[in-house]
């Protein structure tokens, strides 16, 4: 019976974390830990796109790395199609590594200046030996470069990465993931380094992949881009998911005071609309997070209960989950 339930789940859930905890030891050998991810139940559905929104220190990038398996849980589980990714071995692990790929923000930040576009795109294919001949490798690199509009591909393939513009480098970052033909793309701030006039091109490029049955998980502090790109989103604050639901609804009617403060603070390109700062202070250290609700020291609505008891993430309206004692 239990097996049946989990099988059923794996059809409707791509990723699922169960009470995921990731702590990092503070450098210097002390007994202090950074509570990067602190009890997160996150789900992402197949062939959909899911956003993880948060400011710096929210734990969003650690959560993404845990989904990818490059960061190991301190406790809790990461399930991919119902299977614990940290228990995968041999072919199953290799398969997972091919099917799930991350697009990093400017992955060529510290690159060997002699590295060519071809090398960058072929790297993953070479590591996992996903080709049988030089012709096949050429072909896959060519297709990936053409998909990101670096055409004709032969003109770009032998250029050095360092000779490209920021927009072109980010396109190479997408191409090297595309070359692996993954089913799931994890996008870590994919456009945050780019100038406004070229951002849209990268987003559009990834948006065009959606009809091919691909799944996306987008991590960003930029709620406007996440709102457009994703179907559902989760808002993180200090290692916790504080709110999740359909992206449009969360943005147009946020229910958690943190999400409300975040939305009110996002500027829009219209001089008649002003930003408002509803929350005081700044995000506290994740080494010693506040008791109870982690947002309570900054929350305009905080009551006594908020410092005493931690609110659970509960469904307050159909499809809308909020971790606040007062949300309804």
């Amino acid at each position: 019976m239990e097996e049946l339930v989990s099988q059923k789940r794996s059809e409707t859930e791509l990723f699922r974390t169960e009470n995921l905890v990731v702590y990092f030891k503070v450098r210097g050998g002390s007994k202090l830990f950074v509570h990067a991810v602190d009890g997160v139940d996150f789900t992402a559905k197949p062939r959909r796109s899911t956003g993880i929104v948060g400011e710096s220190g929210s734990g969003k990038t650690t959560l993404a790395k845990a989904l990818l398996g490059v960061v190991k849980p301190t406790s809790g589980k990461v399930l991919f199609e119902g299977r614990d990714i940290n228990a995968l071995k041999g072919d199953a692990l290799r398969d997972f590594r091919r099917r799930v790929q991350m697009v990093y923000q400017d992955p060529f930040d510290a690159i060997d200046p002699l590295y060519s576009v071809y090398d960058a795109v072929a790297e993953g294919l070479r590591i996992l030996r996903l080709y049988s001949s030089k012709e096949e490798l050429d072909e896959r690199v060519a297709r990936a470069l053409e998909a990101v509009k670096l055409t004709p591909w032969s003109e770009y393939a032998y250029r050095r990465i360092t000779a490209l513009s920021g927009g072109q480098r980010q396109r190479v970052a997408v191409a090297r993931t595309l070359a692996m033909d993954p089913e799931v793309f994890i996008l870590d701030e994919p456009v945050s380094m780019l100038d406004a006039s070229v951002k849209g091109e990268i987003i559009k490029l990834m948006d065009n992949l959606k009809p091919n049955g691909k799944s996306f998980i987008m991590i960003s502090h930029d709620i406007a881009t996440v709102r457009f790109f994703t179907d559902e989103l989760a808002v993180m604050y200090l290692g916790k998911i504080v709110e999740s639901g359909p992206s449009g609804e969360v943005v147009s009617e946020p229910l958690h005071p943190y999400t409300q403060a975040l939305i009110a603070a996002v500027p829009v390109p219209d001089p008649s609309v002003s930003v408002r700062s509803l929350a005081k202070g700044e995000i506290p250290s994740a080494v010693a997070p506040p008791s109870g609700c982690r947002f309570h020291p900054r929350c305009p609505l905080a009551q006594e209960i908020c410092s005493a008891r931690e609110p659970e993430l509960r469904e307050v309206r159909p499809g809308r989950f909020v971790a606040c004692h007062f949300a309804s």
Partner: peptide
């Protein structure tokens, strides 16, 4: 520029 109030893709 992405505008949170809209559900349209930003152009480039």
């Amino acid at each position: 520029v992405p505008d949170m109030r809209k559900n349209t893709p930003n152009e480039f």
